[in-house]
Simulated scan of single mutants.
Amino acid sequence: MSNIHKMLESTFANQDLLIDLNEKDAETVSGGLERFTIRNETDVRIPYAVDGKQTSYPYGGSVSTWTTGKGGTVDFDYDFGLPGVQSRKYNLADGRTYAFRYDTRTSYGQDIELFDIT
């Protein structure tokens, strides 16, 4: 087999590998940073964490912009009516704006949801 054929075979194998990567793996491999904004559009304090780092501004009406290279996973308590923490986690997307709002789809009017607003 000629050197050109070996190079082409290797190139095609590498392309197949890249095609198999999912979006999260691609972020990890590229080492890219994600930046997104989280608003608290409620009137209550919502403690939440992004990639394990607790927010400094959990209060109603606050706005926080996050930059992370660790995946952009937000974790928060969505139901203050139950004792303990009812954790909900989402992987947030780069360049988006999200808002904590009351979830009117549930029977308990104080449930919290994180909505993608852009």
Rank of each mutant, 00 (worst) to 15 (best):
L18F: 09
L18C: 10
I19C: 02
D20V: 04
D20E: 13
L21Q: 13
N22I: 07
A26M: 14
E27W: 08
E27L: 14
E27G: 03
T28F: 11
V29W: 07
V29G: 02
S30N: 12
S30F: 08
G31D: 07
G32M: 12
L33F: 12
R35F: 08
F36W: 02
F36L: 02
T37L: 04
T37F: 02
I38C: 01
R39I: 00
E41Y: 08
E41D: 15
E41W: 03
V44T: 14
I46P: 00
P47V: 12
G52I: 07
K53G: 01
Q54P: 00
T55I: 02
T55L: 00
S56A: 10
Y57P: 00
Y57N: 11
P58Y: 06
Y59S: 08
G60N: 09
S62F: 01
V63A: 00
S64E: 11
T68V: 04
G69W: 04
K70Q: 11
G72F: 04
T73A: 09
V74H: 01
F76P: 05
Y78N: 12
Y78R: 14
D79C: 14
D79Y: 12
F80Q: 07
G81K: 07
G81C: 09
L82G: 03
P83W: 06
G84H: 08
G84T: 04
G84I: 01
V85I: 14
S87L: 13
K89V: 07
Y90A: 09
Y90H: 03
L92Y: 01
D94H: 13
R96W: 04
T97H: 00
T97N: 01
Y98W: 05
A99F: 04
F100A: 01
Y102F: 15
T104W: 09
R105F: 10
T106S: 15
S107P: 08
G109T: 11
G109D: 15
Q110S: 15
Q110I: 14
